[in-house]
């Protein structure tokens, strides 16, 4: 009965695919239902405008802004580190590096991407922070700056790899056209290749931001756990992810309002990354130059 056998196999494959869909739906359902319950106690207006986040204290405030500020501060620092370095590496590998060098550096970068984030977090706390404290006296032991810098280092391979793919996809003929008119390698790289690959580079940055927003371990270890509405990178802050860790691992009673705050925070996080991933998809589709 070969037909029956085939049917069983197809059904098996289809159910494997359905599992992922159901999982996604399940996660969104849990997030959504708990978030809705949360908002039956706390008004959405307070959630979005209150400048304090103190759900675990007696005087409770439920303003997500301090967590959002912490998240965007560390993310901003991370991109500030990762974009120039990552793009420079990508340009160097694609435009200058001899093949042999490329063969060594690419796997090395992948190792950088494979380092567990807890190691990065420890590195931030034990190496970068003491180093920065020598340069900036008065900097707190936990701060957004060193967490952001290390997060940037973590994102470099992502930016490099995606930007390099984008540069590599630019046809050789454009490079030849540029050289043919007397451009130097540097002019060719930054006036022709990078602009021609810009949609791919933008996508790499957006995915990098998305990654940084969702990053947990580094900020949990090195950035401190004090929700604070500030753009000062030298003091302890708390990100959305860190708050979720803090509550999940603490002794907050299940089903309580305090417990539901992590779902509201999780929902905010989900919305951010969902929007960013969609923007990157849209940029890719809309702005990618079509080469034959």
């Amino acid at each position: 009965m070969p037909r029956l056998k085939e049917k069983i196999i197809v059904t098996g494959l289809a159910s494997a695919a359905i599992v992922t869909i159901l999982t996604t739906i399940g996660i969104i359902w849990v997030l959504l239902s708990q978030t809705i319950e949360f908002f039956s106690d706390v008004s959405l207006f307070d959630f979005l405008t209150d400048t304090q986040w103190t759900p675990l204290f007696a005087d409770k405030h439920f303003g997500i802004l301090p967590l959002v500020a912490g998240t965007f501060l560390t993310t901003f620092i991370a991109i500030l580190v990762a974009l120039p370095i990552g793009l420079t590496i990508a340009v160097y590998l694609n435009e200058y590096a001899p093949k042999s060098f490329r063969k060594i550096v690419k796997p090395l970068l992948e190792i950088l991407a494979a380092v567990p984030t807890v190691v990065y977090g420890f590195f931030a706390l034990a190496v970068i922070t003491p180093f920065l404290q020598m340069l900036i006296p008065g900097m707190a032991g936990f701060n957004a700056l060193s967490a952001g810098i290390v997060m940037g280092i973590m994102i470099i391979p992502l930016i490099t790899s995606l930007s390099e793919d984008a540069l590599f996809a630019v046809p050789m003929s454009l490079r030849e056209a540029s050289y043919g008119m007397g451009s130097t390698r540097l002019q060719t790289a930054f006036k022709v290749m990078v602009p021609a690959a810009s949609s791919g580079i933008i996508v790499s940055v957006i995915l990098g931001i998305s990654r940084a927003i969702g990053e947990t371990m580094i900020v949990a270890i090195a950035a401190g756990q004090q929700p604070r509405l500030t753009l000062n990178p030298l003091v302890p802050i708390e990100t959305i992810t860190t708050y979720i860790v803090q509550v999940s691992t603490g002794d907050v009673a299940h089903g309580s309002l305090e417990y539901r705050t992590i779902f509201a925070a999780g929902m905010a996080l989900f919305v951010f990354t969902f929007i960013l991933n969609n923007i990157s998809y849209w940029v890719k589709k809309k702005f990618q130059e079509k080469y034959e």
């Binding site: 030849e176 043919g180 022709v192 021609a196």
Partner: peptide, 11 residues
């Protein structure tokens, strides 16, 4: 100057 086989204007 050089002109190539396939038209290669910059984007």
């Amino acid at each position: 100057g050089m002109v190539f086989q396939k038209p290669n204007p910059f984007p």
